[in-house]
Structure formats: C-alpha cells, structure tokens
C-alpha cells in the first residue's frame, strides 16, 4: 500500500444501501456502509441491514454517484410550491354530472 493522502488512507469507499421490505413496496434508504467493491457491498449490506428479516431485495449505490440536494436549501428550492394549491386535486371543484371522481 502506497497510500499517502490522509483523506484516503486506504479505507474502502462508501455505499448507500436501499432495502425493499416486501414485494410491491419501493426500496427505502436504510443506511450506508464501506466496502471494497459492489459485490462485497451487497454482502455487507446483507450482514448489516437484513439481520432481522427486513428485506427481500437490496440495492447498493456508490455514495459518490448520488447527487443530493443542498440540506440548507429552503426558499427557492423547496418552498416555492407553497401557496400553489392548484397543484393539489382538492383545489378543484367537481363539475356537475361527473359521477365517478
């Protein structure tokens, strides 16, 4: 090992783990872990996150492949839908004669 960069002191890359608890549901983020490659990441995920029969399917994704929104961003990014109640179905009144809505 000739790793010199202290920020990368030979440690394994980070992976995000998504688990589907039962068929028909979506995969849900369960946590993260370190692993040398995707195959081992899947096995580590099995060891760390499915110990109590939680899963029927596991996804692992390299953490660096995820583009995340800025946790501090509110205003323009998340709050602009406020007041736009016309984006909700309940905003609209039911037209006469429509029976099955």
């Amino acid at each position: 090992m000739t790793s010199i960069d202290p920020a990368d002191s030979g440690s394994w890359p980070l992976w995000e783990v998504f688990i589907r608890s039962s068929r028909g549901l979506s995969h849900v983020h369960a946590g993260s872990l370190h692993a040398p490659d995707a195959t081992m990441a899947l096995r580590n995920a099995r060891d760390l996150y499915t110990r109590r029969n939680e899963g029927t399917s596991v996804w692992v994704v390299p953490a660096e492949a995820i583009m995340a929104s800025d946790p501090d961003s509110k205003g323009g990014f998340f709050e602009s839908p406020q007041g736009k109640s016309y984006r909700h179905a309940t905003y609209y009144t039911q037209s006469e004669g429509v029976k099955h809505l």
């Binding site: 440690s11 394994w12 872990l33 370190h34 692993a35 096995r43 580590n44 060891d47 760390l48 110990r51």
Partner: peptide, 11 residues
C-alpha cells in the same frame, strides 16, 4: 480490518 468485516465475521 474494517467495521463491516468485523460484523461479517461475528455473524
């Protein structure tokens, strides 16, 4: 060598 492997061997 790593926490994850610690858990795997303990399992």
């Amino acid at each position: 060598p790593e926490l994850e492997e610690d858990v795997a061997l303990a399992n």
